[in-house]
């Protein structure tokens, strides 16, 4: 399982981190770090709960195991997706 991170939508609520600080890493201002998150076997429930707690819908759960190779680029923090 993988969590797709839409950085442009993240507004630093830190709800994902409150659920699972080891899975969802924040920068010093409290916004999620760029890059999709590969979820380890055993952590899937916690990861999907974290993703489902994001008020901005910035975290998308991808249950297919195929990994994407292009790293998610750093995007500006504007309102648009």
């Amino acid at each position: 399982m993988r969590i797709i991170v839409h950085n442009a939508k993240c507004q630093g609520h830190a709800r994902c981190w409150a659920q699972a600080p080891d899975i969802f890493k924040l920068d010093d201002d409290g916004y999620i770090l760029p890059g999709d998150i590969q979820v380890a076997e055993g952590e899937q429930l916690l990861a999907s709960q974290g993703a489902r707690s994001c008020p901005e819908r910035a975290l998308e759960v991808d249950r297919t195991s195929a990994a994407r190779f292009e790293p998610a680029a750093m995007q500006p923090r504007t309102g648009e997706a």
Partner: peptide, 20 residues
Amino acid sequence: REHNRHAAFGYGPHRCLGSH
């Protein structure tokens, strides 16, 4: 209640800075 994505602190770029 779980998965409680309430709006108390607003949404978008002005999301309450004092929320934490």
